[in-house]
Amino acid sequence: MGIAERKLRQKETIRAGILASAWQIVQSEGWQSLSIRKIADSIEYSVPVVYNHFESKDAILMEFIRQGFNILSTQLQEAKTATSHPPEQLKAIAGAYWQFALSHKPHYEVMFGLGIPGCEAVKQMEEMKKVSEAMLSAIEKTISAGNSPQADPYLKLHTYWSILHGFVSIQMFSGYQPMVPRKLILEDAVESFIKGIMA
């Protein structure tokens, strides 16, 4: 192995160590406790070494956001391809989204810390774009199969994503305990959404 290859491998090892350490801090203390100083202390390197790999804490957060959207897009695509019927795809996507949020809570928190991403944010990150496209294509097909072909698919995408995010937020951050299981409420809301765009 040449010197250049060795340096590259060392750089990748340090970068992976920074991310692993950051993730451990998040898992044990939460996102609000994450700092460059804590990461540096954890991996036993100086603060400038961390800055050589990530220009800021936000850059580290962005890496976790990218990872989260990559996992989510894979799971939504798998759910979507399990059926060829567009309304059923929307139900499957909703179920996969819900399951992702419950099983990847730290990722979900950083991915949606400021709510649903806007159009510009979606365009800037390929992983986020894939999540949006999985939902949008199922919505467009459902609109085509219904009686309102003039419906705006982008408006419906925002409505659909708002339903999903709203229910996840209630599940994660609210002490509210409904009389029926939350998943049934989500399924009922998605069913109503589908009926609305097919009417």
Rank of each mutant, 00 (worst) to 15 (best):
E5Y: 00
R6S: 01
K7G: 00
L8V: 04
L8H: 03
S21Q: 09
W23H: 01
I25L: 15
G30A: 02
W31I: 08
Q32A: 13
S33T: 07
S33N: 07
S33Q: 09
D41P: 04
P48H: 10
H53N: 11
F54L: 10
S56K: 04
K57T: 14
D58T: 09
L61F: 05
L61E: 10
M62N: 09
Q67V: 05
Q67W: 08
I71P: 03
S73P: 05
S73G: 04
E78P: 08
H85L: 11
P86C: 12
P86T: 12
E88P: 00
I93K: 08
A96D: 13
Y97L: 04
W98E: 07
W98I: 13
A101M: 12
K105I: 15
F112R: 05
G118M: 03
C119F: 14
V122Q: 05
K123L: 11
M125T: 15
K129N: 13
K130R: 12
A138M: 11
S148P: 03
S148W: 15
S148C: 14
Q150L: 10
L155S: 05
L155Y: 11
Y160K: 02
I163M: 07
I163T: 11
G166Y: 04
V168C: 00
S169I: 02
Q171E: 12
Q171S: 13
M172Q: 15
G175Y: 02
G175M: 05
G175L: 07
Y176C: 08
Y176I: 14
Q177G: 10
P178D: 13
M179E: 15
V180L: 12
K183E: 11
I185L: 15
I185E: 14
I185F: 10
E191G: 01
S192K: 13
S192V: 04
G196N: 06
